[in-house]
């Protein structure tokens, strides 16, 4: 199942948003322009703009207005990715060279700040304080989620609650806000707004859990980076948390972290641990948690009237449950 097929009816509007995005990052300085454009052209599923547009379909859909919200979400997301790559010293993203690898960290910092500014500039067209309050709160939470992730690196005494709070901040809230703002800006009825925000939240949780599973199970070609990269960086995700219930595994991981921390090359021990996780039942257990969130997402859609947009939201949920990269 291919994701774009389920919302083919939005293709024209998404093309407009794509042009809008490229126009928005036409900076005066050639390097700033090239870096921003490269980020956008590297692709991505544009899932946040899609959620904004689909949610807006439950109210008074006005593309001239809603396109600003959709573009802003993508720019905010891109700004956070380019800074993430500096944090992780990443050299590849989606198989393409990162901005920090092609230029350097300084160019990445300026590009991220520039994109954040452009996102705010185009979003200011929307004179709705509630919408800005929701998004700005999400941006603060997103940064706090990143900080928690950094502070929790190599910490093997985390619990499931830590993990869920972290992915909520890191991923789910931005998707929830994209659905919420789409509905708010289109003046959708209050109960639709609430249901769409919750749908986005549950979808976001499920999406991130699957992402964390795929980090172990997908091929490096599909991931655009080596499998197990999260664990190599000390990030404890759901499959690892399940595996940590086994105390002998916990000891082995602790000693492996001790040896490989600070090393440029991943130790054989750690590579074996990644393989062990991949082959164990923790992958299935993690899928089940993701599935629980998906079920909650479906439940929220029951409030909404039948429409192409509702069907697309259901299809996206199905796709997330089955995606392989």
């Amino acid at each position: 199942m291919k994701l774009p097929l389920s919302y083919k009816f939005l293709n024209h509007d998404l093309d407009i948003i794509e042009s809008e995005l490229l126009y928005t990052v036409k900076a005066d300085h050639p390097v700033l322009r090239a870096a921003s454009t490269q980020l956008l052209k590297a692709g991505g599923k544009r899932i946040r703009p899609v959620f904004v547009l689909l949610a807006a379909k439950f109210g008074h859909y006005d593309l001239e207005k809603i396109k600003h919200v959709a573009s802003s979400f993508e720019l905010m997301h891109m700004a956070s990715l380019v800074h993430d790559d500096v944090i992780d010293d990443a050299e590849l993203r989606r198989g393409h060279e990162t901005i920090n690898a092609k230029w350097d960290n300084r160019v990445s910092m300026y590009t991220g700040d520039y994109m954040f500014a452009r996102a705010l500039e185009i979003l200011s067209v929307i004179q709705n304080p509630k919408a800005h309050l929701i998004l700005s709160n999400t941006i603060v939470e997103l940064a706090q989620g990143e900080i928690e992730q950094l502070k929790d690196q190599y910490n093997l005494d985390q619990n499931f609650r830590n993990y869920l709070r972290r992915i909520k901040r890191k991923t789910a809230l931005l998707i929830a806000s994209s659905c919420h703002l789409g509905a708010i800006v289109a003046d959708a009825p209050a109960d639709y707004q609430k249901a769409l925000a919750k749908y986005g939240y549950y979808i976001g949780m499920s999406y991130q859990i699957i992402d964390d599973i795929l980090d172990f199970t997908a091929t490096p070609e599909k991931l655009g980076k080596p499998a197990g990269s999260d664990l190599f960086q000390g990030n404890i995700t759901l499959p690892v948390l399940y595996k940590l219930e086994d105390t002998s595994f916990k000891q082995r991981l602790a000693s492996s972290f001790e040896q490989s921390r600070g090393q440029a090359v991943v130790s054989k021990d750690l590579a074996d641990i990644v393989e062990e996780i991949k082959q164990s039942d923790v992958i299935e257990k993690s899928f089940r948690v993701s599935e629980l969130y998906l079920q909650k997402a479906y439940k929220q859609l029951e409030v909404l009237p039948q429409s192409k947009a509702k069907k697309a939201l259901m299809d996206i949920a199905k796709y997330i449950g089955k995606r392989s990269y």
Partner: peptide, 17 residues
């Protein structure tokens, strides 16, 4: 380095908020 990136991002978010 990582903290400098994150503290900046958090403060930018606080400005908007």
């Amino acid at each position: 380095k990582q903290m400098n990136v994150l503290v900046g991002d958090l403060l930018s978010g606080k400005f908007y908020h």
